[in-house]
Nucleic acid binder design. Sequence first.
DNA 1: CGTAAATTTCAGACATTCCTGAAATTACGA
DNA 2: TCGTAATTTCAGGAATGTCTGAAATTTACG
Lengths: 173, 173
Amino acid sequence: MKLTPTVERCVLHWGEMAGRWGISRSVAQIHALLFLSPTPLTADDIAETLNVARSNVSVSLKELQAWDLVNVTHVLGDRRDYFQARKDIWEVLKTIVDGRKRREIDPTLQMLRETVGQAKQDAETPQEVKDRIANMLEFLEEMSNWYEQIRDIPRPTLLKLMRMGARVAKVVG
Amino acid sequence: MKLTPTVERCVLHWGEMAGRWGISRSVAQIHALLFLSPTPLTADDIAETLNVARSNVSVSLKELQAWDLVNVTHVLGDRRDYFQARKDIWEVLKTIVDGRKRREIDPTLQMLRETVGQAKQDAETPQEVKDRIANMLEFLEEMSNWYEQIRDIPRPTLLKLMRMGARVAKVVG
DNA sequence: CGTAAATTTCAGACATTCCTGAAATTACGA
DNA sequence: TCGTAATTTCAGGAATGTCTGAAATTTACG
């Protein structure tokens, strides 16, 4: 399967950004390909189109499925799995941010809570330092709670809010 | 220099999270140490405390300075550089998010703009695919603009907005 | 200047992550 | 149940990223 220049460009760019996004090149390219593809693709289609090992495609697809960014469909009379990516970009964003929060923020929140608890029995550490840790915990909790709330606001409302931009500030004076 | 258990725990945790945050362990540990330290530290202090090579500290500090998370101060009658981290957690967050946006989002925005422009001369690519790309560009522009606006709202206002949580939604019906 | 402390550079050791290809496993139809 | 297509597992090679220690450079002061 040959890609059109436009699609090829996107796939290659996704691949280049993969490092910065903290995922592997293959996963990024496969996701780009599936996201843009008008129809579901088999693993072989993907391996051939992107010139990567078939086994690599298998592992990468598992990862994308674990992220809930890709799911499997089937075609009548064909045993092979067909893969398609979620096309709704809001859902994709939410999925990615949820994942990052879970892996990058939540463990630190957890650790800070424990640390603040234990710090009370720690006479060695200056109060100033304890305060800074407690302050950081409070801040992260606040951000975390905020995200949990706004992530469930219905999409049209969220869009309106976003388009208001800085003017929402007037609401609270 | 010996760390108190509380501080040691934070430093080690920062180091462990480094991978997930897309930075090196050394950079993360040094930042944690400086962020919690009540006083500025010399590069030698840091190397000794964390048991890492002096040269590693030098490179890591350069990186933290490039991120604008750490700056240099001096002590009268001492030639050595003393390093301190920004202590204001809002500023730290803004700095980090700005950096991530610049490195992870802006290049893609740029690429999508170019691609959408070029796609007009591309008869091969189905309209549906072009639309999806244009749609993605629009979405990212919207998010990007939104961030640029709210990042400059004064902190107390932002805090109030955050504490309103989902109730802001009522404002726009 | 000269020199000694402080800092930086950098080659290569080490560690980690990613990818491949062969082999094993699973799923399906005859 | 057998044979074949489809998929997955996994050992090891390739590529990348990180850290060290020695050497080079810069800086401050006599």
